[in-house]
Simulated assay, not measured.
Amino acid sequence: MPLQPITPTDSRIQHKTAVLSGYTYHYLHGVPVAKQKGTVFLIHGWPDLSMGWRFQIPLLLDMGFQVVAPDLMGFGGTDAPKVPPNPINLYGYKRASDDIAELAKEVGAEKIILGGHDWGGFVVWRAAQWHPELVTHVFSVCTPYTAPQEVYHSLEQIVQGPLPQFGYQIHLASGDVEKSVDNEDSIRQFLKGMYGARGPNGEVAFSPEKGLLVENLPSLGEGGLLRGEILDYYVKEYSRHGIHSTLNWYRTRKANWEEDRGLLERQEISIPALFIGATQDSVLKPELSRNMEKFLPNLTRESVEAGHWALTQKPEEVNGFIRKWLEAQNPDLKSSL
C-alpha cells in the first residue's frame, strides 16, 4: 500500500518553531514510532514550503528517521526580515546552512542526512561544504551541484550566454511580480499556475525565459498539483508575508558568490551523494548535471520522468530512489520496513 502523504493537520508531524541566530523558523517535525536510526533534514525551494516534502516524510519516518523540514527564510511561518535595512545575505546559502546547523542542535541531532529540492538543493550542497562535521549524506532532487566560482558572472551574463532558461530569475528579482501578486486571491492564482493549472485556452503562468506571466493569472482554472486542503494551506502560508520576501532568494547571486569564496579550497564533496534528475524540468535541465562526478566522487545518479515538481508529481519513483540509496549506505535500514 502506498504511503499516504502528510497533511497540515497530520498526527505524524508537529508544527514547531525555533529561534535561530535571532530569527524564528517554523519547521515540521516527525519522530519515528520504532527505534530512531538517524535524522533527515529536508529543504524546500520556490514557490514551495516544508509541506512540499509531504510524500517523502512518511517514507523516512517508516524507515526509522527523525524528520525535520523547515520553512526557509521568508517563507511560511519563518520570519521574513526586510531588505534593506537587513542584509540580503539573510536569504543566502551560508546563512541557510548555518541555520540548519543550529536547528540540528535544537532537535538533538549530532549528525544529519540532508535532502533538498530547487533552492533547497543549492542549499544542501553548500551546507555539506560549510558543515562537513554535521552532514553525513546529501541528496538533491532536480538541482545539480555547482562548484564555487573564482570569477563572478552576473545573472544577465548567464542568461545571455549558456542558460537563457534562467531569464525568469531576472523578472522575479526585479520587484515587479509582487506588485501584481499582492493579495490572497492573486496569491491563489499564482500558486495554482506555478503548479500546473492552465486557462481555458491553454494559458500558463510561467515562462522560463520571461518569468511570471501575470496577464494570464486571472484566467487560470482548477487543476495542477496544488488543490483542496493543500492549496488552501499554501495560500494561507504565502499570505503571511506576501511573496516579496520569498523572491529575495533571487536577489542573492552576488552575495552568494562572495561567501562561496570561502569554499574555493573545498569544492569537492566526498560524502555519499544522490542526485535525482527530472527529465522534463524546463529550467534545471538534466544536462546541467553532466560534470558532477568531477566534484562528487561518491555520487549516485537516478532519473525520473517528471517535471520540476517531481517530489509530488512522481512521489513513488522519487521515494524508491531515496530508499534504495539509503539502504545501500546502511543495510540495517532494510529491517525497519
Rank of each mutant, 00 (worst) to 15 (best):
W130E: 05
M73G: 01
A255I: 06
E317D: 15
W53L: 08
L60F: 03
P32E: 08
N330V: 07
P84S: 06
R251M: 11
L3R: 13
P81R: 07
D332E: 15
G202E: 04
Y23F: 14
L72T: 01
E102K: 15
V151P: 00
L3M: 11
G161R: 09
E156D: 14
A173V: 05
T312N: 08
V135G: 07
E106K: 09
L28F: 10
L213R: 03
L220P: 00
K285E: 11
F122E: 05
G45L: 05
V181Q: 06
K254F: 11
R323G: 04
W257Y: 04
T246S: 15
R12D: 09
T78D: 09
H117V: 12
P87M: 08
Y195K: 04
F206H: 01
I230M: 15
I100C: 07
S186M: 09
E184G: 01
L20E: 00
S154K: 07
Y93K: 15
Y168D: 03
D232A: 15
G193E: 02
K294W: 04
G223I: 05
N183R: 04
A128L: 07
R54K: 12
L42P: 01
K37E: 13
D10A: 10
E229I: 13
V235M: 10
S154D: 05
L226G: 02
I158Q: 12
R240T: 13
P87W: 08
G22W: 04
P8H: 11
L231G: 05
I57S: 08
S180F: 14
P47W: 03
I13A: 06
L3F: 14
D232H: 06
F275E: 08
Y195N: 11
W53R: 02
T143E: 05
G223A: 09
Y27D: 02
Y234R: 07
W53F: 15
L212G: 00
W249F: 11
E102S: 12
E317Y: 04
W119E: 02
S174F: 08
I57V: 15
D99Q: 13
Q165S: 12
K179D: 06
L299R: 02
L28D: 02
G38R: 02
G77I: 09
A34D: 14
F206T: 00
F321I: 07
R251Q: 13
L155C: 06
A104G: 01
W325A: 02
W249I: 01
I43H: 04
E150R: 13
S245D: 09
L231F: 10
A69F: 01
K314F: 00
M1W: 05
K254L: 14
W119G: 01
H153R: 14
H171K: 13
L337D: 07
S140W: 04
V124M: 07
I113K: 03
E259C: 02
E327N: 11
M194N: 10
I243T: 05
I88E: 12
A310T: 02
Q149N: 11
L326R: 03
P58R: 03
H244T: 15
V40I: 14
E106Q: 12
E258K: 11
L134A: 08
A80M: 10
Q189K: 15
L134D: 06
L226S: 05
Q36M: 13
A109L: 07
T78W: 06
Q329I: 14
E110F: 00
R95W: 07
P132F: 10
A18M: 03
I243S: 08
P200F: 00
L60G: 01
E327T: 12
P164D: 07
N183C: 10
L49F: 05
P84C: 08
